[in-house]
Design a protein around this nucleic acid. Structure first.
Lengths: 230, 230
DNA sequence: GCAAAAGTGTTGGGAGTACACCCATGA
DNA sequence: TCATGGGTGTACTCCCAACACTTTTGC
């Protein structure tokens, strides 16, 4: 590092790509901006880093503030940082983006203090480059691509399911996020055969219709061997 | 985003994990600090983000300053950001880390203005948690893990080779980075059979001894299908 | 019984591994 | 001629996609 005196005044923010599967679609949480710039436009939830806060703590706090839910209901990981000099007309900002994956939430953004918060299908948001304020469309696109890629080699898809879920519900997550269809029989064999992916609860359910299906919890593995391919 | 007035004064830096393969080892570029804090200790190269500079531009500039080589000689990608409140005793800093992969350089850090710059084996640097100043040991560990993972499913190993290289030289990169040994015959078949990975130059060389080997350039694919497994 | 979804068996092809073998050079 | 590494052939195994088939529920 060189002389600190030459550093520019920079504001650091944390922005969130919060994804869920709702109504057979991958959806992202968006907030309507109440202030300039981009007043009235949709944006990703986020806010400024506080003086004594580490980056993951700031991301958790924002997540709580925007959704009213505790952060342990989510998978949260850092996506990347964005710092183009003109990305915010007010001042020089660098944002550290996080992605959060969640099960379908009972009521979107319950208990938030944001003026207007809404789930919107990712397909619609990514259809036009300026659907979101600032550079948030690019950040969302990166987040979605990260999520798609991680389904292949991590058990992350379970983060989109509730506490207990069936193999079919898990497969549905893959089909929606990847936009493909998968063979139910082979999918079943594959996920139940991968050690540490799923943990049986012993209970069954008929909520998907037909023969009762076993209920599972997420296992403890962090990586899938072998990976599930698209 | 909420009120900008509540934001803390934060300095943003860019730090680099510069990796190369030298002397049958994965090595990282380190700089001896000439100032407090951590004066005299080794650290990752890096510096403050300038007022009108985007993050990738800052990373490229630092790379040029520290190595004296143009940035197109490297593969450069963002690794992640680190912002623990106490990571720098002088002030609140958030650093955006990048990894740079390079071929073995003729003379380490030629033309740099850094007081003391040196390649050091990653195995030695990661042996003790405080081998590097600040949180740089953790950043280095993350960077090495990223590089190892990316060799599996991208053609990134070619970034460690020169402009033209043989299959054996490429295999050597894999063996050093992964710390494994690979079957030369099957490796040859695999990499030459993956479309877009390697592009033949038509020339041959005997620099590895034995029968002349074909020379290749890096191809255009960004992903390996199927992946090379460790 | 019938529809619907869960879950198992079987089979054929493709990819990975191990290793025998041949090729082309320098010394 | 021998050592050294480059490169091909081949057989065996294992995984996986495709799909027929059985099981267990609700209606």
């Amino acid at each position: 590092m060189t002389d600190p005196d030459e550093h520019a005044p920079v504001a650091v923010t944390v922005d969130l790509v919060v994804l869920t599967v709702r109504d057979d679609q991958l959806q992202a949480l968006t907030i309507r901006r109440g202030e300039e710039p981009h007043r009235g436009r949709w944006a990703l939830p986020g806010g400024f880093l506080r003086p004594d806060e580490d980056l993951p703590d700031a991301a958790e706090r924002e997540l709580r503030e925007e959704t009213g839910l505790s952060a342990d209901r989510f998978h949260l990981e850092q996506l990347g940082s964005y710092g183009a000099p003109d990305r915010d007309p007010r001042m020089r900002t660098v944002t550290v983006a996080y992605i959060a994956l969640a099960a379908d939430l009972p009521t979107p953004t319950a208990g938030t203090d944001a003026a207007d918060a809404r789930w919107q299908p990712v397909s619609r948001l990514l259809g036009t480059d300026d659907a979101l304020a600032f550079d948030h469309s690019a950040i969302l696109a990166d987040g979605v691509e990260r999520a798609r890629a991680k389904l292949e080699y991590t058990p992350l898809a379970t983060a989109f399911c509730g506490e207990e879920f069936t193999v079919t519900e898990l497969r549905h997550v893959y089909e929606v996020v990847w936009g493909t269809s998968l063979d139910p029989r082979n999918f079943h064999r594959k996920v139940t055969g991968t050690a540490g992916f799923l943990e049986p609860t012993g209970a069954t359910t008929t909520r998907d219709g037909g023969r009762p299906a076993q209920l599972f919890r997420a296992g403890t593995t962090r990586h899938l061997h072998p990976p599930l391919l698209r």
